[in-house]
Design a protein around this nucleic acid. Structure first.
Lengths: 140, 140
DNA sequence: TCCCATAACGAGACTGAGTATCAGATAGGG
DNA sequence: CCCTATCTGATACTCAGTCTCGTTATGGGA
């Protein structure tokens, strides 16, 4: 989860490791919740005034491509990004506080297997998202 | 699945039933696969040259709201729509032919229950999407 | 059946997310 | 250290989606 492992991931994916990409990753991880590309850009400019808008967008795509970030769909049709475990596809999103937790692959795999068997589908990818209220928000 | 049941759904949801809304629904159902709002608009204008762009967008939202259509996220960040069973949230999408099949709620409910119990989450909504190759495309 | 308040419509302007372009900078292999 | 392919940043551009506003039509009530 450190910037070191992100650098490795980029290299393994045939992507270059640049100062800007690490900055984008660092900001995404520090925020720790879903954030739109535009908001992340605004945040980044506070610390790195010369960073380019397109760079942020391109970098987010690159981070998604190598599996350290994930694109998410917000209500509005806007996409948001979250730093996450490589390859992770399943989320538990609180629409009160915006926090996104991950759900283990283990919950989904058996369902995928059953669906594949029942429908003759060859499944390459799966997404499972739950929306609701997290324990903390429900309490407070 | 007829336009009659869509009319009822709109009425039940406190939405008015208009010629345009039924036209949009009819086109969406006829196409029978995921389609972007813009493409649906282009298609609709062939038969109904006076229909407005905003009307199509607004109507798609209304159809989603009353549960006879579903918004979908395509690769590009563009959203697409599919006619579907009311309240339906789970799909099996073939990225070869674009066809979208539905998955029964029954596959997901037990997983939702387990996740809710394990994490203390109050789940309001769930989405499960599988991507892959359908039986027909895999054969041909 | 007619009325009319209110919701929906159509046209077109507007917003803003995301992309393309291109000259200059830089990572990283040799 | 060099060289080149890739990345960056500035800016212009595209186009999905929204808003506005004058007009039209739905549908509940008299």
């Amino acid at each position: 989860m450190s910037s070191r492992s992100t650098a490795e991931r980029l290299r393994d994916g045939g992507e270059r490791v640049t100062r800007q990409r690490l900055d984008v990753w660092e900001a995404l991880e520090r925020i720790g919740r879903q954030v739109s590309a535009q908001d992340l850009y605004d945040e980044l400019r506070r610390r790195h005034p010369r960073i380019g808008r397109a760079t942020v967008y391109r970098t987010l795509e690159a981070l998604v491509a190598v599996g350290v970030a994930r694109r998410f769909e917000l209500d509005g049709h806007v996409s948001a990004y979250v730093a996450c475990r490589p390859q992770h596809h399943h989320h538990l999103a609180c629409h009160r506080c915006g926090r996104v937790e991950e759900i283990d692959e283990g919950y989904v795999a058996p369902v995928a297997a059953r669906v594949a068997a029942d429908r003759g589908f060859r499944i390459d990818d799966a997404r499972l998202d739950f929306y609701g209220t997290c324990a903390r928000c429900a309490a407070g």
